[in-house]
């Protein structure tokens, strides 16, 4: 019975190693754990899927900084792939000065996958200060908010923005954020201009948007890595997108890690009871 005592006092480094393996292994081994699509993800997907190239550009705002990149970047990538697969025009921007670099990197990377050209198929906007002011100003005239794009081209010369004045020509604005910026989009974009708002947020913040989904103030939401993985599943299924499905891989790691943790907890408890029984017997 010495075994149980050893399990019970297992050196924590073994646990660390187990966790590391559980998380890293799925990167290399192809496991498919079926992913069930949750209603908020489905809602966002369906809305974007009904759009056509003449519905006007969709707007994706990268309202996050490097600290929440892990959870949020896969969402941005999945949304961009969906839009580019459908030949929709895209405007990307950020309400954060530190988010603008991320927006530019990711948008241009994904655009390359689809041979999309800046100015014609998509636009990256530069940083403009103030959340409220920026959103309100897009509601009036986006070319006034951003006189030039990120690369310094005048926005009124870009064919992608032909006939686009304000929210009326932008069918949806999606805020990807680990903080409270989606609230600003809801308050100023939806309430004031009736713009459809989509939200991509971290797993921890996701629950706070449920009331807004219920009242339809938010058209759809991706919550955490799971939400991103669901979206990736949808676009893989219907558009056969290639490229790394970061979140799906991450989700496999996530599932593996949770399973390992639960096995550890069960082992811990078995050893606890075994040792107790042993002690009772010896007493």
């Amino acid at each position: 019975m010495n075994f149980w005592i050893r399990i019970s006092d297992l050196d924590r480094r073994w646990i660390y190693l187990l966790m590391a393996v559980a998380i890293i292994l799925p990167f290399f081994v192809n496991i498919t754990i079926p992913i069930r699509i949750s209603p908020p993800t489905q809602a966002l997907y369906t809305y974007i899927d009904t759009l056509s190239p003449d519905s006007g550009p969709i707007l994706i705002s990268f309202d996050y900084d490097p600290s929440t990149q892990g959870e949020l970047t896969p969402m941005a990538i999945a949304l961009l792939r969906h839009a580019f697969s459908k030949n929709l025009h895209v405007i990307t921007m950020s309400l954060y000065p530190t988010g603008i670099g991320i927006a530019e990197n990711i948008t241009s990377d994904i655009a390359k996958e689809y041979n999309k050209i800046e100015g014609r198929d998509y636009v990256v906007m530069p940083y403009a200060p103030g959340y409220q002011a920026v959103i309100l100003s897009i509601g009036e005239d986006i070319k006034n908010t951003f006189a030039t794009d990120y690369y310094g081209n005048r926005t009124d010369t870009l064919s992608c923005l032909n006939g686009v004045k304000n929210f009326e020509q932008i069918p949806i604005a999606i805020s990807i954020s680990g903080s409270s910026t989606p609230y600003a989009w809801i308050t100023y974009g939806y309430t004031k201009y009736g713009e459809k708002i989509g939200v991509g947020t971290t797993a921890v913040s996701a629950t706070s948007y449920y009331p807004y989904l219920r009242t339809k103030q938010v058209a759809g939401m991706l919550g955490g890595l799971k939400g991103a993985a669901e979206y990736e599943t949808l676009i893989r299924k219907f558009y056969h997108t290639k490229g790394r499905s970061m979140a799906t891989i991450g989700m496999n790691s996530q599932s593996m890690a949770h399973i390992i943790m639960i096995i550890l907890i069960i082992l811990g408890n078995i050893s606890y009871f075994a040792i107790r029984k042993q002690n009772k017997r010896s007493a």
């Binding site: 998380i23 892990g70 955490g224 890595l225 790394r244 991450g250 790691s253 996530q254 890690a257 949770h258």
Partner: peptide
């Protein structure tokens, strides 16, 4: 239990950084 997921995704992110951005082992 709720926090476990968020904490694990932190390491997933770092592992992807090491294996993808740095070593290029995964694509």
């Amino acid at each position: 239990g709720y926090t476990v997921m968020a904490r694990i995704s932190l390491f997933i992110d770092r592992a992807q950084f090491l294996l993808h951005d740095w070593l290029g082992l995964i694509h």
